[in-house]
């Protein structure tokens, strides 16, 4: 088994070897390591993409807007790097669409890292495949195939507002249960056992 450290190093060198700058090659090394950590086939997709560079041309998406189209498929590495570099402006957009993206799995780790930077979960749809990117801590998805995904017709990205996944009743019910661990204070205790406030959120 190849270690993640080996993957990072080889990918970085290979990325420089096919013509990316050292700085971008560093990003790709970290990204493929991330994909492999999450059990997604990063190295396999990257290898196929790099092989395709010999015969195909890919569009560089540098300025990302709400809607992005190109007749020539987008390079996932340049699009991803641009996404990270523009995240400060992009985070305020509700939805971003990118049509015609090559090897979209290679675009995914950039978004995962973006989720951590902006502190928001990101929903990513690659055609019918759904990914929920959780602050670069984990990825929830209905797609776990160990295969090469050469192309996506449509990528849809949305930043998810930070909100609870539960309603007030559910919270109140659990809070009520949590009070079973509290002690009713006598007047004497109220005077002598002074400490933290009403709740103890540890």
């Amino acid at each position: 088994m190849r270690s993640l450290s080996e993957i990072d190093t080889i990918v970085k060198r290979a990325s420089k070897g096919v013509g990316y700058s050292w700085g971008i090659a560093e990003e790709v090394g970290k990204n493929i390591k991330l994909l492999e950590t999450y059990g997604l086939s990063g190295l396999k997709n990257l290898n196929d993409y790099f092989n395709s560079l010999k015969s195909k041309k890919f569009q560089h998406l540098t300025h990302i807007s709400t809607e992005n189209h190109s007749k020539i498929p987008y390079c996932p590495i340049i699009a991803g790097t641009s996404f990270l570099d523009q995240i400060d402006e992009l985070k305020d957009l509700v939805n971003i669409k990118i049509e015609n993206m090559s090897y979209p799995i290679l675009f995914l780790p950039f978004l995962s890292r973006a989720s951590e930077i902006v502190g928001k979960k990101i929903s990513l749809k690659i055609d019918e495949k759904i990914f929920l990117l959780n602050f670069n801590q984990n990825i929830y998805s209905n797609y776990f195939a160990n295969e090469i995904l050469k192309h996506a017709d449509l990528i849809q990205i949305s930043f998810i507002k930070n909100s609870n996944t539960f309603d007030q009743n559910e919270w109140d019910n659990l809070y009520k249960l949590s009070t079973n661990t509290f002690v009713d204070e006598t007047d004497e205790l109220k005077k002598s056992a002074a400490g933290a406030g009403l709740t103890d959120n540890d």
């Binding site: 700058s21 050292w22 700085g23 990003e27 790097t81």
Partner: peptide
């Protein structure tokens, strides 16, 4: 960086 990725490192 969009135009200067050669110095990204």
């Amino acid at each position: 960086l969009l135009e200067n990725n050669d110095l990204r490192h």
